[in-house]
């Protein structure tokens, strides 16, 4: 913009580079959660670029709406679908990968060529004056939104309401059976297999209320039921403190 403004250059190359890295990470990650995090990275960097382009309002909206709301929404859905679910990277459709890369590469080259050819000699006007007209970028955008683009604004609000309703309708689960009452639930618990009561909370004779500390049974052995499965699977169980075993023994009337 201004000759010799190397600050913007640095911002551009760093943020732009990180954005591209994030995009590549999204395409190439095996796990879905990693892809989501890479996308979030890209979007934050894009927000930085918006600010660098004299669009502070948009930058903030990008962070709040996109990175904050949309990506969180993605992560919630990933939770529902299954965090473990990972794509096998073997392509089942013949030639899809190759043709896709070729076409996308071609598209990139064409766009770059078109842009390069069209914009070589353009001097950007810059938004300093425009932003100053109404006393700031936000005010300028507000002026446009509520005058020139008012109809689009109102229609977009209707769209948002419709989207919310649509999501509610789509995610709704129909209740086919009558809701089980408290009595029926406890009956089922006692008649069915398995332990009828709650899982023991962290410790009968527990000395800690951490989730990863196993409760001790009266004979001093750890209770398998008191640690949630994932922790056991991950091997995150805290080892038993011998001190406490002795204490329990004394409470129980000495070692057996």
């Amino acid at each position: 913009m201004i000759e010799g403004n190397w600050g913007e250059e640095i911002v551009f190359w760093v943020s732009g580079g990180l954005a591209v890295l994030g995009a590549l990470g999204m395409i190439l990650s095996k796990k879905a959660v990693h892809s989501a995090l890479c996308v979030a990275l890209t979007m934050i960097n894009l927000a930085i670029l918006y600010v660098a382009n004299s669009a502070p309002f948009l930058g903030m909206v990008q962070v709040i709406v996109y990175t904050g709301a949309v990506m969180m929404l993605f992560l919630f859905v990933l939770m529902v679908v299954g965090v473990d679910s990972s794509d096998s990277l073997i392509e089942t459709l013949k030639g899809q990968r190759l043709v896709a890369i070729v076409l996308a590469l071609g598209l990139a080259i064409l766009l770059v060529a078109g842009v390069g050819a069209g914009l070589t000699d353009v001097v950007p006007v810059g938004l300093d004056e425009t932003n100053g007209v109404d006393g700031g970028n936000v005010q300028g955008i507000a002026r446009l939104l509520f005058t020139d683009y008012l109809v689009a604004f109102e229609v977009t609000s209707a769209l948002l309401i419709t989207a919310a309703l649509g999501a509610m309708v789509l995610a709704h689960r129909e209740r086919w059976l009558p809701r089980a009452s408290q009595q029926e639930l406890s009956k089922a618990r006692f008649l069915g297999p398995g332990h009828p009561g709650n899982l023991p909370s962290s410790g009968t004779y527990a000395r800690h209320n951490a989730v990863d500390t196993p409760a001790l049974l009266p004979d001093g052995s750890p209770s398998d039921l008191s640690i949630p499965g994932p922790l056991v699977a991950r091997g995150d169980v805290r080892p038993i403190d011998h001190h406490e075993v002795e204490q329990i023994e004394s409470l129980g009337g000495g070692p057996k």
């Binding site: 459709l93 899809q96 043709v99 076409l103 598209l107 064409l110 060529a113 078109g114 069209g118």
Partner: peptide
């Protein structure tokens, strides 16, 4: 073929063709 990705591929192919035509005409 029934695969949405194949259809998406052909869509991209079409889009590339149109962009190519525009760029070539411009150039």
């Amino acid at each position: 073929s029934g695969f949405a990705r194949s259809y998406a591929l052909s869509m991209l192919g079409g889009a590339v063709l149109i962009v190519a035509a525009l760029v070539l005409v411009r150039l």
